[in-house]
Amino acid sequence: MKFFISVMTAIMLAALPVNSFAKTKKLKGPQVVEIADLSIELNGLVCDFCSIALNKTFQKRAEVHGTYVDLNTKIMSVALSPNATLSNEDIIELVKKAGYSTLKITRKDGSEFIPSAKP
């Protein structure tokens, strides 16, 4: 059993984000709303753990410059890096990966996308 626990510990330590200091600093907070390229309406947002999951999942992508999740409006604002884009499919997949579901995606140009109820 000690061996098993040692192996598990080694796997988990290897997964630690030790190089996270080298990553580009992403923009956080309500100021992202002002410069957002994407507004994503979400299902299932009830607490700060939800917003953390979404922020962390999106901010791993190079295309993403900043994020902010507003629990009151249930909208996630995403600012993209210069010349970057995220497809609707990518957005829906990232939201799903974080554990939530997408109601509507609105882009800066005013275009909207409503995913089908059942993928």
Partner: peptide
Amino acid sequence: TGAQINRLVKRWNKPNSQ
């Protein structure tokens, strides 16, 4: 002292609840 595996069997996301 031991290891554990957690599985989210099902999540229901609704506009105002989870």
